[in-house]
């Protein structure tokens, strides 16, 4: 029981880290066609995430991997019932990855235009779809006793699902704009800051709507009412949100970005804590819901995986932090002149 609960927490944590790290890449890519006015600005935007995006994406592989390892039944039901949205996310991520790598390899405006389009789609679509998918999970997915999905892609595009999609998208865009504020200079930086400042109230509004809608469409608050201490998560998320605003005002971009990280983790955990112990609730029949207690791996596997995660995740965090530090500072013209640059 304890082991399963620890794994429930780790499951949420890994997804949250994925949203926090890859989120600013999604945001950058969504703003890319609108903020990058010149070829140089476009390249600066791509190169601002160049050395880091691939490592960030592995958090998704790991989040998926531990879902498979610790909660195989959840992995099986989640991935097969969300078949269509996951395929769309997959194709988007495939396009995104090759776009970054391929765009700079041929010096032709036509060639670059193709990859400019896929960079946008490849970042925009996952940002939106992950939000839609998770909101639907918070709300419950219509799957029956055989794990068969009783609906279509349209079923997922319900009001709460769409609110979730918009919240994720806005959070990632603000996250990305703060990243660009850290990494760029001049006009591009000014446009990124302007975008962040203009979107902040919209994002905050969307989050408030989402929190209210959660009371209408989901039973996430049941856990909060039973354990009021959980409201601390919401406090953290809101503190993160306000922190973004405060530090944007002080032009302390790195601190604002840090607060944005906090708010993304906070919002993710708002849902995850409300879900507990359910990982994948069925909206058809609550008894079919997959929980940390009825869908987990054997105690032996959970123990082995815990050892693996306790050893390796800190190591991963250490070398990723090292990489972030190594590539800190503004992306300069000199950076773009390297033949390896994107």
């Amino acid at each position: 029981m304890v082991l399963q609960n620890i794994w429930f927490f780790l499951w949420g944590l890994l997804w949250a880290i994925f949203f926090m790290t890859d989120g600013f890449v999604f945001g950058m890519g969504t703003m890319y066609p609108f903020l990058g006015k010149t070829e140089e600005e476009k390249r600066i935007m791509i190169n601002s995430v160049g050395p880091l995006w691939d490592g960030n994406e592995v958090w998704l592989i790991t989040a998926g991997g531990v879902t498979f390892a610790a909660f195989p039944a959840v992995y099986a039901t989640m991935f097969s019932t969300l078949y269509t949205p996951l395929m769309l996310i997959l194709f988007a991520l495939i396009l995104r990855g090759v776009s970054f790598e391929f765009r700079s390899k041929v010096d032709s405006p036509k060639w670059k235009r193709v990859w400019d389009t896929t960079i946008f789609i490849g970042n925009f679509a996952p940002a939106l779809l992950f939000g839609v998918a998770f909101a639907n999970i918070f709300q419950g997915i219509p799957f029956d006793e055989n794990g068969i999905f009783q609906g279509t892609l349209i079923t997922l595009l319900n009001p709460y699902g769409l609110i979730g999609g918009v919240v994720f998208l806005l959070m990632f865009i603000v996250h990305g704009s703060l990243w660009l504020a850290i990494k760029t200079e001049g006009d591009l930086q000014a446009r990124a800051i302007q975008t962040g400042k203009r979107l902040w109230p919209v994002m905050a509004g969307a989050i408030v709507v989402c929190l209210i809608a959660s009371a209408v469409f989901t039973d996430l608050y049941d856990n909060y009412l039973a354990n009021p201490v959980l409201f601390l998560i919401l406090v953290l998320a809101v503190a993160g949100l306000l922190g973004i605003k405060v530090f944007m005002g002080k032009e302390a971009w790195f601190k604002a970005w840090g607060c944005s990280c906090l708010s993304i983790v906070g919002v993710t955990f708002f849902g995850v804590a409300g879900l507990f112990p359910r990982l994948y609730p069925s909206s058809i029949n609550a008894d079919l819901s997959l929980t940390a207690h009825n869908a987990s791996s054997s105690p032996l596997t959970l123990k082995i995986m815990l050892v693996v995660v306790v050893i390796f995740i800190p190591i991963v965090l250490a070398y990723q932090t090292w990489a972030y530090k190594l590539f800190s500072g503004k992306v300069t013209e000199e950076d773009l002149s390297h033949e390896e640059a994107y």
């Binding site: 592995v58 592989i61 790991t62 991997g65 531990v66 498979f68 390892a69 610790a70 909660f71 195989p72 039944a73 992995y75 099986a76 039901t77 794990g147 791996s297 054997s298 596997t301 082995i304 995986m305 693996v308 995660v309 390796f312 995740i313 991963v316």
Partner: peptide, 16 residues
């Protein structure tokens, strides 16, 4: 669902 206890954990170790 049938083999995740073993197969899934090996994949997760690979990623981590």
């Amino acid at each position: 669902a049938y083999v995740g206890d073993i197969f899934g954990s090996i994949l997760a170790i690979e990623a981590t």
